[in-house]
Design a protein around this nucleic acid. Structure first.
Length: 419
RNA sequence: GUGAGCGUAGCUCAGUUGGUUAGAGCACCAGGUUGUGGCCCUGGGGGUCAUGGGUUCAACUCCCAUCGCUCACCCCA
């Protein structure tokens, strides 16, 4: 038997309604904030990701689905969507048409990691990018949008974490400070962290290993070395969040794993989903557009993992989805009327009624059971004496009431059903 | 890439210290008198016990390998 690739999942009809619910909800909120949807290709030239996300990051160095196509071009399935959106922004000159572009997206992303709870190889993210302004109001707006979406899904167990990484000069300067601090303690660090000392020293803060945490506890913090502008912007972000009643924690150890971030970074974590607790993450990337060859354009954005969010909803039982149902199920009560049933069904469907009937030649009892299974509001019986008289029996399945209507009177039927 | 746990019907799981035709609930199908559902009752279909090897008179049960799944580490959404 051929099975789905490891780390991929079928989303079956039985669970599709929560996906659709989530998608409708987030579209609605994005539109309230005046974001427009953008759809970019699921694969791009490999160099795009290498240059934007960073050659040394885990994503690029070991998690990408990369292959050569028939013309020997190196292709990569997108591991995230900021790079693609920025590429499209530059290529399509979106910045020339208006100074600020507020964009959102929904789609599948791909990373080749070992699957676990809340982690798949093909997974889905929605997210937003605002390109063209350095205003910290947009940084805060990103957090607000993400937070609203999660709150509107009924999630409770949330923590918003924010930090600022400052401008690159500040960060470089701070790295030296950190290097000085760690110089004589380096030997005591874990092996991984010793490696990070050279590759990405900021990430030693992320370490969950006891000895590392002990050492980092007293380390100097980037946040104390911020330049004036970054500091002011960060203050604005905090004030805004306070004004709109979004609780947050400043987490100086929040160093995101993608190279392009500057200034504000944030993450929203849930206590309801197991070990992979980040439901969403994002931040500002004022240099990325330029690095990818566009005119210098500041940007800020976030991405959220849909599987993780739905997992949190599941665990908190926070979604109350309406039961699936259809308006009408047609029951054929004598043989030979198959085409008549089909004809009535197509009339009702044209009248915008959800309608179905039996295709398996089943007994009346079985058809009734089917109607019940589909949670049909009404059953229309086709056949018998009343049919010969040009009438149909219509039964309300919730209360059992039954009445006759004229065969051609779909308006009356519709009225009956909609009441 | 590393580690741990688990693979018996479509699903959730029973299956005695290895012992003869492998079970239950749910789901599915049919019926419970002429043309009417949900609840209930009766019956039915469906399993190479993940795969391959080994031990044994005998393996779903013990051993090994492979594959798959799950969770965790790393990192991230």
């Amino acid at each position: 038997m051929i099975k789905a690739i490891t780390g991929t999942k079928d989303i079956l009809p039985a669970e599709i309604s929560k996906w659709q619910y989530l998608e409708n909800l987030l579209r609605n909120i994005f539109e309230n904030f005046n974001y427009r949807e953008i759809r970019t290709p699921v694969f791009e030239e490999t160099a795009l990701f290498a240059r934007s996300i960073g050659e040394e990051t885990d994503i690029v160095s070991k998690e990408m689905y990369t292959f050569k196509d028939r013309s020997e071009t190196s292709i990569t399935l997108r591991p995230e969507n900021t790079a693609g959106v920025v590429r499209a922004f530059i290529e399509q000159s979106l910045g020339a048409q208006q100074p600020l572009n507020k964009l959102y997206y929904i789609g599948a992303m791909f990373r080749q990691e070992r699957p676990q709870a809340g982690r798949l190889r093909q997974f889905h993210q929605f997210g937003a990018e605002a390109l063209g302004s350095t205003s910290p109001l947009l940084d805060a707006e990103m957090i607000q949008i993400a937070y609203y979406i999660l709150k509107n899904l009924g999630l409770r167990n949330l923590v918003v974490k924010i930090n600022s990484l400052g401008i690159p000069e500040v960060r470089e300067n701070y790295k030296n400070v950190l290097r000085d601090y760690l110089k004589d303690k380096k030997d005591k660090l874990s092996e991984d962290s010793r490696k990070r000392f050279d590759t990405n020293i900021l990430r030693i803060f992320d370490s969950k290993i006891e000895v590392d945490q002990q050492i980092m506890k007293d380390a100097p913090l980037l946040i104390d070395y911020l330049d004036e502008q970054s500091k002011n912007d960060f203050d604005v972000v905090k004030s805004y969040l306070t004004k709109v009643d979004i609780p947050f924690e400043v987490d100086p150890a929040l160093v995101r794993g993608l190279d392009y971030y500057t200034k504000t970074t944030f993450e929203i974590v849930s206590g309801s989903v197991g070990s992979q607790s980040a439901l969403c993450g994002g931040g500002r990337y004022d240099l990325l557009v330029e690095e990818l060859g566009g005119k210098p354009t500041p940007g800020v954005g976030f991405a959220a993992g849909m599987e993780r969010i739905l997992l949190a909803c599941e665990n908190e039982k926070s979604l109350q989805l309406p039961e699936d149902s259809i308006d009408v199920y047609l029951v054929r009560i004598e043989n030979g009327l198959e085409l008549d049933v089909a004809e009535i069904a197509s009339k009702l469907r044209r009248e915008d009624l959800q309608c179905d009937y039996d295709y398996l030649n089943r007994s009346v009892k079985a058809q009734m059971r089917e109607a019940n299974k589909y949670n049909a509001k009404f059953v229309v019986f086709v056949g018998g004496d009343e049919y010969k008289r040009g009438e149909l029996s219509v039964k309300n399945l919730s209360n059992g009431d039954q009445q006759l209507i004229k065969f051609d009177d779909t308006a009356a039927l519709k009225q009956l059903i909609n009441n």
